[in-house]
């Protein structure tokens, strides 16, 4: 309410003044969010090595993030894989009707970028939203405050098990979902473009740089999803509506983080493994 009063007071001083005020306020808010996110990440890393975890907490989170997301991710990546190969095949057919590199190029794309990025984006919609909703509802029902009163850091108790589980299960899910996407792509290539298995299943274009870039992305996305969505959950305010907004912000911020990280990791990968 005080912000609204302050904003009304500023508006009285002129439109341009109000615009500058909004810009400055948003910039400060963004910087504060960045600092909070960084602080949460550092604390998560600290408690990962020094914290005390409840027995079975990581396994339960791993089951929740991994096993329960497996079907969703496989179906999504399988469908996207079929569409990708079909479209690539159509474009190839227009230029050179030679499908000998359809499988190898698609596999290179999957390993280097596609499986990790699309898989993580899909995972963030399910896992990120779930984490933000769970922690946000705990915040609005003051369970997090109760944890703090009990001398239990909510980062150690809530975020770290999810962080560890996500770190492992994101990589696991991406490997499995990528494999599914490659196989569904083969089905499309075989039935629509008569590509044989011997031609399609070729790793001739894959090199160590592709695998390392893909692996780094798996780890980075696996770490980013619980941290970003946990931060959105912990910064929830305003009751059940606030929980809804926290969930939305978690999905948006996770997606944005994944896209930005993809840009930087791919750029670094290209610079390091350009040969």
């Amino acid at each position: 309410m005080s912000d609204q009063v302050e904003h009304a007071r500023i508006e009285d001083q002129g439109a341009i003044h109000a615009e500058v005020y909004d810009l400055g306020a948003q910039a400060l808010s963004l910087i504060a969010s960045g600092r909070g996110l960084y602080s949460l990440f550092v604390r998560t890393l600290y408690y990962t090595f020094r914290g005390k975890r409840e027995r079975g907490a990581v396994a339960a989170e791993a089951f929740e993030i991994g096993n329960r997301s497996l079907f969703f991710l496989c179906v999504t990546m399988g469908c996207i894989g079929m569409i990708m190969v079909y479209q690539a095949g159509l474009q190839t057919q227009r230029i050179v009707p030679d499908f000998s590199l359809l499988g190898p190029t698609y596999l290179e794309l999957l390993v280097r970028d596609f499986a990790a990025s699309i898989g993580a984006l899909m995972l963030s919609t399910r896992v990120g939203a779930g984490i933000a909703a769970e922690i946000g509802s705990m915040v609005v029902t003051e369970q997090v405050d109760a944890l703090r009163m009990s001398a239990a850091d909510p980062v150690d108790y809530l975020i770290v098990p999810k962080f560890l589980a996500s770190l492992v299960m994101t990589a696991v899910l991406i490997v499995i979902a990528g494999t599914v996407a490659f196989f569904t792509g083969f089905i499309t290539a075989h039935f629509f473009f008569d590509v044989s298995a011997q031609t399609y299943f070729s790793i001739q274009l894959i090199d160590a740089g592709d695998v390392i870039t893909g692996a780094v992305k798996c780890v980075a996305y696996g770490a980013a999803i619980p941290v970003v969505s946990g931060y959105c959950g912990l910064s929830t305010h305003g009751g059940s509506e606030g929980v809804g907004w926290a969930t939305t912000r978690a999905v948006v911020n996770c997606s944005l983080t994944i896209i930005i990280m993809n840009f930087f990791i791919s750029g670094a990968g290209l610079m390091i493994f350009k040969n």
Binding site: A59, A62, V175, T179
Partner: peptide, 20 residues
């Protein structure tokens, strides 16, 4: 039940490791 949970998670990780 907890052990069953861990087995399922372990099996998933094993599959991914084998593929990789």
């Amino acid at each position: 039940q907890e052990r069953s949970l861990e087995v399922k998670v372990g099996a998933l990780i094993l599959v991914a490791v084998l593929i990789l």
